Amino acid sequence: MFSDNLEQIESLMTNFAIAILFLLIGLAIQDVLKKGNVPRFGRFFVWLVLFLGMAGFIAKGVIQFVVEANIH
């Protein structure tokens, strides 16, 4: 059973690891922004870029899931 689902488990763990990486990047950025006294305007764009990167990653996963579901 494990060998049958190995590809799905690998994909799930990769996505989980990338989600943790996004969280750690967000925490690091928050710390740098606080210590650097960055104005609100700059903080907004930093978080916007981070959010768009994460949204792109999620969109890629959804699109990949839909395409693979239609093939099989």
Rank of each mutant, 00 (worst) to 15 (best):
Q8L: 12
I9T: 09
I25E: 00
F16P: 02
Q30S: 14
N70R: 13
S11T: 06
L33K: 02
K60W: 15
A55Q: 06
L24P: 06
G42M: 10
L24F: 15
I71E: 02
I71T: 14
V62N: 03
V49T: 11
L12G: 01
L21K: 12
L24H: 09
G36Y: 06
L52D: 03
V46Y: 05
E68K: 13
F16W: 03
M54G: 12
M1K: 05
G56E: 00
N37I: 01
A19V: 09
A19Y: 04
K34G: 00
V66W: 09
D31V: 11
N70P: 04
L52T: 09
V66L: 14
I9R: 06
S11Y: 04
L48D: 08
I18E: 15
V67C: 06
R40S: 15
F41H: 00
A17I: 06
R43A: 03
E7A: 13
L48R: 00
G61T: 03
I71L: 12
L48H: 01
G56P: 00
V38E: 07
I29D: 09
A69Y: 11
G36P: 03
F16Y: 10
G61N: 11
L27A: 10
A17G: 07
L52F: 14
V66A: 15
M54Q: 10
F22P: 07
A17M: 14
F2G: 15
L6G: 05
L50R: 00
D31Q: 13
G56N: 11
A69D: 10
R43C: 00
G56Y: 03
L21R: 11
D31M: 11
G26W: 07
V62M: 15
F41L: 11
D4M: 02
L12N: 04
L6P: 04
G26D: 10
M13L: 15
M13W: 00
R43E: 09
V49N: 07
Q8W: 01
G26V: 03
G36A: 15
M1C: 05
M13S: 06
V49R: 00
V38D: 05
L33I: 12
K60N: 14
I29Q: 12
H72N: 07
V49W: 02
R43H: 01
A28S: 11
G36F: 05
K60L: 13
F16S: 06
L21Q: 10
F44H: 07
G26Y: 05
F45D: 01
G26I: 03
V62D: 05
A28V: 13
M1V: 10
E68T: 12
E10P: 07
I58Y: 10
V67H: 03
G56Q: 03
I9G: 04
F44W: 02
K35R: 15
L33R: 03
N15S: 07
N70S: 10
G53E: 07
G42K: 08
E68M: 13
V32A: 15
T14R: 12
F44L: 14
V46F: 02
G61P: 01
F45N: 00
G26A: 01
G53P: 06
L21A: 13
L52E: 02
L23V: 14
G26N: 13
Q8M: 05
K34V: 12
Q8R: 10
I20T: 10
I29P: 08
F45T: 01
N70A: 14
V67W: 08
I71P: 08
